[in-house]
């Protein structure tokens, strides 16, 4: 039973983790994209449509990623090229995404989707205890974990990652050092779109293989919260996503076991837990400040 519960938690946490990892990279470069929900839902509808039409879920995942990227380019055009306000543009992107996905998906409502099946890694998946949990999952799970590690390595162990972080920390001096601020940010925003699109694809290909309007149901916002929760550190994002998943699944189990607490209180637990943990970690003020991209949300236009 424990294994089954952990598998459920992993499925619930994966889309949050994917979207949050992407947003983390964007925010580390100094771009706050509040349009995660919009990019995610576009990824979801594109993935469903392509997987359903072609019968191939892998193509669907690809389409989801592409949809996320193209939507993030729209955001980039506005905020990076035209230097519009990032908060407002992100919100507008979400409105646009929810509307556009509903329009595109109209003919796919009520159709059973194509599921991207789990891929068991031979030998390893037969390990006792952790075998199925770590090596018998769907491709999105592996991807989310690999991306978490990859992004950590990229940000803190590679030169390009250092450049990205310095662009986010102080775009003026990064520019003075000869870094191409806008190009770095475009790439970061596109990576964010790619991940959000994949998160959406996970929803329609693994989590609940079907398409219905607004099915992301606020997961993009939770991903955004996770980034801040993690104080912009990839490792903590993994922990945060799984913590959030565990609390939401745990409250369902608590109910099924007949614990007589108001269900609203149980539903509020993940949010309260997030606040509590956040307060605990942010008491270490210096560490938090060190990790916060100082240029977050500020437009950059090179003076010449």
């Amino acid at each position: 039973m424990l294994e089954a519960i952990l598998l459920t938690i992993a499925t619930a946490a994966t889309p949050l983790l994917l979207a949050a990892i992407g947003e983390l990279v964007a925010e580390r470069s100094g771009v706050l994209n509040l349009g995660v929900e919009g990019m995610m839902i576009m990824g979801a509808v594109a993935a469903f449509a392509v997987a359903y039409t072609t019968g191939n879920p892998w193509l669907g995942a690809l389409a989801g990623a592409l949809a996320g990227v193209s939507f993030s380019l729209l955001f980039g055009l506005l905020t990076l090229t035209l230097a519009t306000n990032q908060v407002a543009s992100g919100l507008a992107l979400t409105i646009l995404g929810l509307g556009a996905s509903g329009m595109l998906g109209e003919s796919f409502v009520g159709l059973p989707g194509v599921k991207l099946e789990a891929v068991s890694i031979p030998v390893l998946s037969d390990l006792p205890l952790v075998g199925r949990l770590l090596f018998g999952q769907d491709p999105f799970f592996y991807l989310s974990i690999l991306l978490g590690i990859g992004v950590w390595w990229f940000l803190f162990r590679s030169r390009a990652g250092l450049e990205l972080r310095s662009v986010g920390a102080n775009h003026a001096s990064a520019h003075a050092l000869g870094l191409k601020v806008i190009r770095v940010r475009y790439l970061a925003v596109m990576f964010g779109g790619l991940c959000a699109g994949l998160a959406g694809a996970q929803l329609t290909l693994v989590y609940t293989p079907q398409w219905v309007e607004n099915m992301s149901a606020g997961r993009g916002w939770i991903a955004l919260a996770l980034v801040v929760f993690a104080s912009w550190r990839p490792g903590r994002i993994v922990v945060g996503a799984y913590l959030f998943g565990a609390v939401s699944i745990g409250q369902l189990h608590a109910q099924a076991l007949g614990i007589g607490l108001p269900s609203q209180l149980l539903s509020a637990l993940p949010y309260l837990a997030t606040i509590a943990v956040l307060v605990l970690i942010s008491r270490d003020r210096r560490a938090t400040l060190m990790n916060t991209p100082a240029s977050l949300g500020q437009p950059f236009v090179p003076d010449r």
Binding site: Y271, I275, L289
Partner: peptide, 11 residues
């Protein structure tokens, strides 16, 4: 505590 207000207010 220096807790980020974007997150707490949203939660």
């Amino acid at each position: 505590f220096g807790t980020n207000e974007i997150l707490t207010s949203l939660m």
